[in-house]
Write a protein that binds this DNA or RNA. Structure first.
Length: 768
DNA sequence: GCAAGGTC
């Protein structure tokens, strides 16, 4: 029978597809990975009976990385990582999943790719496809395109299978490669520089750079600096109050008061408790010109009679929230429950695994038509905390269909509770309860009130007072995370006049902004496109883990010296690493790749050039960079390695050919030598007997002697053109061939390593 | 020992 392999992005989706298409009768068996089972059932494909095999990966199947010879931080110049080859291979962590797919692909005629319908999903599609084709090069393939995991969507996707979108996938390849290269280059560079040059950094302390980490850090630093550099300014305003629960007086009730105002700020109620006063807002709010406010104030005091100019009444609403997506879950829980985003996501993940809530990684904030929200509401009927309210929604007239937000990931619905959370405890309970209350709130009506805005005039100045009477709390009854309060004010009528309780000349100062809180940071990252709903929490954790940022009082993010030093160092060179622009520009380019307006290589090469130029500039201006760092850290008087000489290219490798360089290197024991970049594949190396390599320079001179004799016999194609010269030999500079000059031979030994020739004498030969 | 993005 025709056998079709179906692969989803995660086990839950595989299960959903199998349940739906099989009409709830799939057979279940274990795969090689215990987390990714296989479902089987009979089905029809183009009216032909087929055997469906449905399984899943867990996110990306493959990993992108440099080949093994580029893994050494000590032996590889970070600069090389801009051009070094990169390899895509099955991630060790996914090896069992890959095995399942291999086995099933061998037996299948066709693979249908049910990966999430987003950029990453498109990329994973090609990873899965490539892996299938490796073991079955005749396998056919199709892409299932679906917007939700509903029967309707899945069935339609099955009936109208398409092809994977290669451009979308390519855009992800570009992002991955750039993130890898730039991350590795700058991480190694900064880590080594700080470890070697400054005190206080452990040999293993990684000072990472990442295209999302740095903007995240940048947001924190930016707010910190705005606060630090804030200049307080005095401002002035007029404060008009009336007595609370006092009916306004008629104008001629107390003529004596007027004369009192003329003397000074008169406060009729000064013996009363101030809390009993109701303050009007000055329509000018505040002015920075003291004299100006003083003049206006004097006018008011001289003629303090207030006249009610207008009374404006209108209904007012407090809007219920949109259906919950991941970013809002993190932002709101972080704000209201004071949990950090990583913790929230871990809890949400575990609630999802235990079946309490729907899939928690979603961008979608509107419910698809296929989901009956009333059924979801009824889930909460048995929960004592919610049963009364649920009753009002389902049996009263309090239900209102949720609003439609404008975000969608075309795959997952908003987050909602799936079963009652009666047994939960601690933070699990708090997060669950938030999700449940939020869900019920978004199925409720907006809160309704009546607002009254009273405007009065005193000597030409206007003051307003706003009152609010809440008529129906509606969603606020269940959503305890938001407040809306009655503001009771006395009754006024237009044209009415009265003498205020007090008119005061007030001065105050502008306040610096607070340090950044986690909900604010989440909002900024989301807005500026730093990270995704699923990774924002990771980036926030990472900048703390890396000690760039600390959280104070479990509330405010503050940059550390390290965080500030890094941002300022790159800033001093004019690089916007800590700003969101670079990432945003890349995102823009990726969209152009997808729309076919730019090609992969252009974007890749342009961006590599951008970062490479920045890196070269960083190295060439290391002093500038280091000067900034010295403001925060002390120089290590005994640096372990001469960092700047670490990666000098000495010559091309006589064994590997002109593409491969021989580099100046240092052993763990601090001994300097030259070694082929291709180590451990090539063991060619030059060992000085004394430490004579510190001044090695490369020349373009060809050694005629070598061409004719010894070297050639070692199959070292001596067409290499570079001859090191060693400076401490007289006359300076001493210029000679490192291979055949007897003077040099006294100072160096050359290890050719194992060669492919049959000449066993050629191994480990020295020059003596 | 490095990134960001999927995911368990």
């Amino acid at each position: 029978m025709l056998r079709i392999l179906n692969v989803a992005e995660k086990p839950s989706v595989a299960s959903q597809i199998a349940q739906t298409l099989s009409r709830n009768k799939p057979q279940h068996r274990r795969g090689k990975s215990k987390y990714n089972p296989i479902w089987e059932f009979d089905h029809y494909f183009n009216n032909q009976k087929c055997r469906m095999v449905v399984t899943s990966v867990s996110g990306h199947l493959m990993k992108l990385d440099f080949p093994q010879q580029y893994q050494s931080w000590n032996m590889i110049d970070p600069l090389e990582l801009f051009e070094a080859p990169v390899e895509r291979f099955v991630d060790e962590k996914s090896s069992e999943i890959a095995k399942t797919i291999e086995i099933e692909a061998k037996k299948a005629r066709c693979v249908v790719l049910w990966l999430d319908c987003d950029r990453e999903g498109e990329n994973i599609s090609f990873e899965v496809l490539e892996h299938c084709q490796k073991f079955n090069n005749r396998i056919q393939y199709k892409r299932a395109i679906f917007n939700a995991l509903t029967r309707q969507d899945l069935t339609r996707a099955w009936e109208r299978l398409g092809i994977p979108n290669e451009l979308e996938s390519i855009s992800v390849d570009v992002r991955r490669e750039l993130d890898l290269r730039t991350g590795a280059v700058f991480t190694r560079f900064q880590s080594k520089l700080l470890q070697n040059m400054f005190l206080g950094f452990g040999e293993k302390q990684v000072i990472s750079y990442g295209s999302c980490q740095f903007p995240t850090l940048g947001f924190v630093v930016d707010r910190y600096n705005r606060r630090k550099n804030f200049v307080q300014e005095k401002y002035y305003f007029i404060d008009v109050s009336i007595k609370n629960q006092t009916q306004p007086q008629d104008e001629d009730e107390d003529q004596d008061q007027k004369s009192n105002y003329q003397r000074n700020s008169y406060n009729k109620g000064r013996n009363n408790n101030n809390k009993k006063l109701i303050k009007f807002d000055w329509q000018r709010r505040r002015l920075f010109d003291k004299f100006c406010v003083a003049v206006l104030y004097e006018m008011c005091v001289k003629n303090p009679q207030a006249t009610v100019l207008s009374i404006f009444k209108k209904p007012e609403k407090k809007y219920r929230p949109y259906p919950l997506n991941t970013v809002e879950l993190q932002r709101r829980c972080s704000k209201r429950l004071r949990l950090n985003a990583t913790m929230i996501m871990n809890i949400a993940e575990s609630l999802y695994q235990k079946g309490y809530i729907s899939y928690p990684r979603t961008e979608t904030n509107s419910f698809p038509k296929t989901i009956n929200v009333k059924n979801l509401i009824s889930v909460q009927q048995n929960d004592q905390r919610f049963s009364n309210y649920v009753n009002k929604l389902l049996n009263g007239n309090k239900f209102c269909p949720p609003k439609h937000g404008r975000f969608s990931d075309n795959s997952h619905p908003p987050i909602y509770p799936v079963k009652p959370g009666n047994n939960l405890q601690g933070n699990d309970l708090r997060v669950y309860e938030f999700i449940a209350r939020h869900f019920l709130a978004c199925c409720s009506q907006d809160a309704i009130g009546d607002s009254t805005v009273v405007t009065i005039g005193i000597s030409g100045e206007k003051f307003t007072l706003k009152g609010l009477i809440i008529r129906e709390y509606n969603f606020l009854e269940i959503y305890k995370y938001e407040r809306w309060s009655d503001i009771t004010i006395p009754n006024f009528h237009e044209g009415q006049t009265f003498i205020p309780e007090s008119i005061l000349f007030q001065e105050s100062e502008t306040q610096p902004p607070n340090l950044l809180t986690e909900p604010e940071l989440i909002k900024l990252m989301d807005k500026e496109g730093i990270g995704t709903d699923a990774t924002i929490a990771d980036h926030i954790s990472k900048v703390q883990y890396r000690k760039y940022v600390v959280k104070e009082r479990n509330l405010y993010f503050k940059p550390t010296d390290l965080g500030l030093a890094l941002v300022e160092s790159y800033d001093s060179l004019g690089f916007q690493f800590s700003k969101p622009n670079l990432r945003a520009n890349l995102e823009f380019d990726l969209k152009l790749i997808i729309s076919g307006q730019k090609n992969k290589n252009d974007v890749l090469q342009n961006n590599i050039k951008l970062y490479k130029d920045a890196f070269l500039k960083t190295i060439n201006n290391q002093n500038k960079f280091i000067t900034k760092l010295r403001l925060y850290f002390q120089i290590n008087p005994n640096p372990p390695i001469q960092n700047n000489k670490q990666f000098l290219q000495i010559m091309t490798c006589p064994k590997c050919g002109p593409q491969t360089k021989v580099l100046l290197r240092t052993t763990k024991n601090g001994k300097t030598y030259c070694g082929c970049r291709n180590y451990p594949n090539c063991k060619f190396s030059i060992w000085p007997k004394e430490n004579v390599f510190s001044e090695i320079k490369v020349t373009q001179v060809i050694c005629q002697s070598c061409l004719r004799n010894k070297i050639k016999s070692f199959k070292c194609d001596c067409s290499f053109k570079n001859i090191p010269m060693i400076s401490h030999l007289e006359p300076f500079p001493y210029r000679a061939c490192i291979y055949c000059d007897p003077e040099i031979a006294e100072f160096v030994s050359i290890n050719m390593g194992a060669t492919n020739t049959n000449n066993s004498n050629s191994q480990n030969r020295t020059f003596n």
